[in-house]
Simulated assay, not measured.
Amino acid sequence: MKFRLLKGVACVALAVMFAGCAEVRTIDYSAFKESRPRSVVVLPPLNESPDVQATYGLLSQVTVPLAEAGYYVLPVALVDETFRQNGLTASGDIHQVEPAKLREIFGADAALYLSVKEYGTSYKLIASETAVTVGARLVDTKTGVALWTGSARASSEENNQNSGGLVGMLVAAAVKQIISSVQEDAAYPIAGLAAGRLLLPRQPAGILHGPRSPKYMTD
Rank of each mutant, 00 (worst) to 15 (best):
Y113M: 05
V62R: 07
T82H: 07
L59K: 01
G87D: 14
V64Y: 14
E48D: 00
T63E: 08
T133Q: 15
G107N: 13
Y56P: 04
V40S: 00
Y56G: 12
E68V: 03
S60V: 02
P45Q: 06
R103H: 12
T63N: 08
I105L: 09
V76G: 00
Q85V: 04
T63K: 07
L66A: 04
Q53A: 06
S91G: 15
R38S: 00
V132F: 15
G57D: 04
T89D: 11
Y71H: 01
S115W: 02
L112C: 07
L102A: 14
V62P: 10
K124P: 04
A69K: 00
G92C: 11
R84S: 11
A100H: 08
R103L: 12
D51N: 12
A136Q: 02
A136R: 03
Q96E: 10
P37L: 03
S122E: 13
Q61A: 12
D93W: 13
K124V: 02
G57V: 05
A111W: 03
Q85G: 09
V64S: 13
E118S: 13
A90P: 09
Q96L: 11
P75E: 05
F106Q: 15
G120A: 05
E118A: 11
G70H: 00
T55Q: 15
S122C: 10
T55L: 12
N86I: 06
L74Y: 11
D109K: 02
A127I: 10
T82P: 06
E118L: 15
A77G: 01
L46W: 12
A110S: 02
S122K: 15
V40I: 05
Q61K: 15
Y56S: 14
E68L: 02
Y56M: 12
I94E: 09
Y119L: 13
F83D: 06
G70V: 01
K101R: 06
V64K: 15
D80Q: 04
A54Q: 11
A54G: 11
S122W: 10
L125E: 03
Q85N: 07
L125Y: 05
Y72T: 10
A77L: 05
V73R: 02
V116H: 01
T63S: 11
L88M: 15
P44L: 14
L74R: 06
P65H: 08
A131Y: 12
R103A: 14
T63L: 07
E98R: 02
V62W: 07
D80V: 04
A111I: 04
T82A: 12
L88V: 14
P44C: 11
S91W: 10
P45M: 04
E48A: 03
G135A: 05
Y119A: 13
P45Y: 08
L102Q: 12
Y72G: 01
V42Q: 08
A67C: 08
E98H: 02
I105D: 14
T121Q: 15
L102P: 12
A100N: 07
S60L: 03
V41A: 11
T89I: 09
Q53T: 05
E48T: 00
Y72P: 01
S39K: 01
K124R: 07
V116C: 00
A100S: 09
E68Y: 03
G57Q: 05
A90I: 08
